[in-house]
Design a protein around this nucleic acid. Structure first.
Lengths: 132, 132
DNA sequence: CAAGTAGTTTAGAACCATTTTAAAGTAAAA
DNA sequence: TTTTACTTTAAAATGGTTCTAAACTACTTG
């Protein structure tokens, strides 16, 4: 299994569990998945892994740059009294949001919308980190 | 209290609790807040409200268009084997994500970055709804 | 190779934001 | 005024995620 080497190159100890996950994820096809999705696929592949291990591995894979986690603003619901359509700066350190007026951003090129769907809104998030 | 009328116009029964919340939120100043933040402000204003009621009211206010909830992709963590920077379509109905190549989107105008910060990445989410 | 050590896995408990339950309370309609 | 539909509430339940602490395993050093 050359995933053993991939893991080592990424600075991760190639444990049995990590190899099982690498074999499922790192096959060249891109996809989105949750921890639970992955645990199911592990079962289907004839293996068994605790959900804590699935989370542990995903965190390690992410920190090693093998996968990404889809950005989400926050883990708690945030409400906004500004009900005019607008965008946001996100302070990555604190989670704080700052509004951006719609006319401060100009998108000149958008991808084709998938067949059968219409664009129901575009959200732009500009992530901020401290400058120093 | 003219918030009583605002509530009625929005199709909401003006209960004691909803008026308390409207008095706090609908004063013309825009802000972001969580349910817990709001419950604290309710306490500070000398009132007391169960967290379930805070959530109920926020949902009603949102559906009535009085406030917005800041978009977040999902309530569960989503991972992605595509670790090249890219954007996403979000199927609002199912939560499904589809990758958009970075070169399919062109932003020609961005707002000034707040002092002391640098832009550490821009995420674009195009929300999709069924066309019918 | 042996023994030590540092990192990993695990079941189960804990956590925490949010929703549900079901009973009591309140606003509006009849 | 009575009824009906909606609302509030405390407390329990839910569900995704993290923590705990004990057992285990990969790697290092002698």
């Amino acid at each position: 299994m050359d995933n053993k080497i991939k893991l080592r190159n990424a600075g991760l100890r190639p444990t049995k569990q990590r190899i099982i996950i690498a074999d499922i994820l790192l096959n060249g096809f891109n996809r989105h998945f949750t921890a639970e999705n992955l645990q199911n696929e592990i079962s289907i592949s004839g293996n068994k892994m605790s959900i804590a291990t699935v989370y542990n591995c995903l965190k390690k894979f992410k920190n090693a740059g093998l996968i990404k986690q889809v950005e989400s603003y926050t883990d708690t619901a945030i409400f906004d009294t500004n009900n005019v359509s607008h965008h946001h700066f996100l302070n990555e350190e604190t989670g704080e949001l700052i509004d951006i007026d719609n006319n401060e951003i100009n998108l000149i090129k958008l991808p084709d919308i998938p067949k059968g769907f219409i664009n129901s809104g575009v959200d732009v998030i500009i992530k901020l980190k401290k400058n120093n």
